[in-house]
């Protein structure tokens, strides 16, 4: 199968890999790079599990071919924090019980990162608007919104 050389930056690390043009970015991140924090739930664009940041903007990686992001900068959940040092959003999700099975959590976190980057001071409605991009089958969403709200407050305190 024809392959194309792909060079990109993921979580600050540059990778150069041959890929088949049809390889979905979700599969490339998960299986070629082994960054399995990005999940896959439907592969037809609805659930949002596969969300990452491409050049700082959220995107569904199941609706993106890896070849398309040649030269781009990708951020996945692995870049946020570690179990020993959680990102404020992760900390807030933990404290507010914003996850149960955890499958949607990476997508939810990255969606919140984009939101707070664009709007450090969101209203609850704005949080709902942004976070409604992804399904969650476990939590009923309320505690996810609580978590983003509390992270926004915490991050403001931290930044200044």
């Amino acid at each position: 199968m024809e392959q194309v050389q792909l060079t990109l930056t993921v979580n600050g690390t540059r990778y150069s890999r041959p890929v088949e043009p049809r390889c979905l970015l979700s599969d490339f991140i998960r299986h070629d790079l082994g960054l399995t924090g990005t999940h896959v739930g439907c592969e037809h664009g609805v659930c949002g599990m596969c969300t990452v940041l491409i050049d700082g903007q959220t995107a569904r990686t199941c609706l993106t071919f890896a070849v398309q992001v040649d030269g781009a900068e990708i951020t996945t959940v692995e870049a946020l924090g570690t179990p020993a040092k959680l990102h404020p959003l992760q900390q807030a999700f933990w404290e507010k019980h914003g996850l149960q099975c955890g499958y949607c959590t990476p997508a939810m976190l990255l969606t919140a990162v984009e939101l707070l980057n664009n709007n450090p001071n969101p209203t609850r409605n704005e949080i709902c608007e942004a976070m409604s991009a992804n399904l969650c089958r476990c939590t009923g969403y309320q505690t996810i919104v609580d978590a983003v709200e509390s992270a926004a407050a915490a991050m403001k305190g931290e930044a200044r």
Binding site: G48, A59, T111, A130, A133
Partner: peptide
């Protein structure tokens, strides 16, 4: 759609 869809 939603924001991530509109981003692309």
């Amino acid at each position: 759609g939603h924001r991530p869809i509109r981003n692309r």
